[in-house]
Amino acid sequence: MNVFRLAGDLTHLLSLVVLLLKIVATKSCRGVSAKTQELYAIVFVTRYLDLLFSFVSLYNSVMKVVFLGSAFSIVYFMRYHKVVRHTYDRELDTFRSSFLVAGSMVLALLINSKYTFFEVLWTFSIYLEAVAILPQLVMLQRTGNIDNLTGNYVFLLGMYRGLYILNWIYRYSTERRYWQMIVWVSGIIQTALYADFFYYYLKCWNENRTLVIP
């Protein structure tokens, strides 16, 4: 565990707190993509199946349970909560997320490090996480004025991915035999997807005005 990894995990946790805060405090999920949230739920379920049969550390296990719990809570609020579900902008959230699931599954079957059930599902979760933000990014472009909490949620998610890259660079230079090409390539693609968003986020923040993605 290094400082970049810890900061990355805490930023990820904070992003989920910000999103849950927005939903619970404002009783609204305006601007939030349910498709992205459902993809994250799939990512966490397929990646954290190892909770059942392997143990890395208490830290890892607790974080996995928290990520799973928060992902399902968010999906519950957006789809089933009697007030919040009416604030979901269905017509703005039109990205065909099933293509992302299918594409990630095909890629995981073709490119993996071991052809076993759990290994392929784990690899699938790595590929799917890389593209899971796309429905949210497309939805932000269509939303117009983006509220602070939603903008900060996406910003924190992007920060978390950036910190993971720094963590990999640190680990690669300090650990022997540390090599995870599938994770690195997916992670770099995932982080690159935020570049556009970061540009407009920082620009609007600098000019002190409401976030709009043209």
């Binding site: 392997s54 540390y178 599938i182």
Partner: peptide
């Protein structure tokens, strides 16, 4: 190449 077993990140 590190597989799922060697992966200790979240």
């Amino acid at each position: 190449q590190m597989s799922r077993e060697g992966h200790d990140e979240l």
